[in-house]
Amino acid sequence: MFAVYADKPNPEDPLAGLVVGERPEPEVPAGWVAVNVKAASLNMHDLWTLRGVGIKAEQFPMVLGCDGAGTLADGSEVVIHGVINDEDWRGDETMDPKRTLLTEKLQGSFADTIVLPKRNVLAKPAGLSFTDAACLGTAWLTAYRMLFTKAAARPGQTILVQGASGGVATALVQLGKAAGLRVWATGRSEDKRALAERLGAHGVFEPGARLPGKVDAVFETVGEASWSHSMRALKPGGVIVCSGATTGGNPPAELQRLFFFQLHVVGSMMGTRDELADLVTFLDLTGLRPQVGLELPMEKAEEGFRAMLGGETAGKIVFTR
């Protein structure tokens, strides 16, 4: 079958191990399903896989792709949930100590076919395109959990989204606006700030800029470069929700500010199947749709990888079949 896969890990030059070619057809164990992939979106996790992070060398070659959408053998249209759990686990799937993501142990979605446990597919509403649905399982699910589960954000509150041009950040802006939050966002270029404004941000600022006031919550995927600004932006008792650190994972501790203002720092990772189901319903009811910055046929996947590696994002990058 056709697939986009990592042939070998390369920490220094991740695209050196990227192959667009053929892989064997997968077998379908009992209790699992085969999804005929129609669209799948690119995530930073795919670049980490190419670097060999979170995956052992003997697990290569590995088909890339953490999420997507497609059809089952009976024609049912489905969305993929990329968190894979131990079959005996009960409760929040993200807390399972044995949980993995697609491409860590199981082959991913950048292929004609992906094989998954049956519980890892959800019905796709007819009104949601395959391209839009392919954006939900990683970036949009991460943003949904950050906003509504971890920050418990309420309509009327003010939030700050740092680095608002990538998949998670654009989802945070769109979801926050749709949920009745005042959304402020930072962007390192005029184009990125303009994008955040078009997506609904009520105010856009250069990184580190003085804000009009303090915020109830800050959403972090940037890390070291923006951390001090995030801490200074919070109201007393406010919360930073962090799901990534694209500029480095060793920010200043800011401990005096942390305890003096009784701030909260919360980690967030992907989301549960129930949260994904709620997110899909939210989009179906509201008509909200993901910001897709680049859509390519899967055969041209390398172009999408190069755009992400170069920071040339304006929303999600989606590959279609």
Rank of each mutant, 00 (worst) to 15 (best):
M62I: 12
E206V: 04
I159C: 08
A179Y: 03
L47C: 02
M44C: 03
A143M: 07
E190H: 10
G137M: 10
S76Q: 15
R145F: 00
D112Q: 12
F305Q: 05
L255K: 03
L294F: 12
D86L: 05
F319N: 01
A179C: 10
A3H: 04
D92F: 00
A277H: 14
A209C: 13
M95V: 09
L128A: 05
K177H: 12
E312F: 07
I240Q: 03
G137T: 09
K118R: 15
L279T: 09
P117T: 11
V19R: 15
G293D: 00
N43Q: 09
F130M: 02
F305I: 09
T281L: 11
S230P: 15
E190Q: 15
T49S: 02
V20Q: 13
D92G: 08
G91T: 11
G248E: 12
T113S: 07
R119F: 02
T94D: 02
G70V: 07
T158G: 01
V53I: 15
V173H: 02
P24V: 09
T272P: 01
Q256K: 11
R51N: 01
A123W: 00
L47Y: 03
P125M: 10
T142M: 07
F130W: 09
V28G: 12
T94E: 01
L141H: 05
V215I: 13
G166C: 06
S230N: 15
R198P: 12
A277F: 08
V265W: 02
S228R: 14
A139Y: 01
I240R: 07
E197N: 13
P61C: 11
V266F: 00
T313Q: 08
N120P: 05
D284N: 15
A73P: 08
V265P: 00
T286I: 03
K192G: 06
H202K: 15
T113I: 15
W89A: 13
R145P: 01
T313P: 05
D274S: 15
T313G: 09
F259L: 10
T138C: 13
G68N: 14
G54V: 02
S129W: 08
M95Q: 14
L42S: 00
G17Q: 12
I240Y: 04
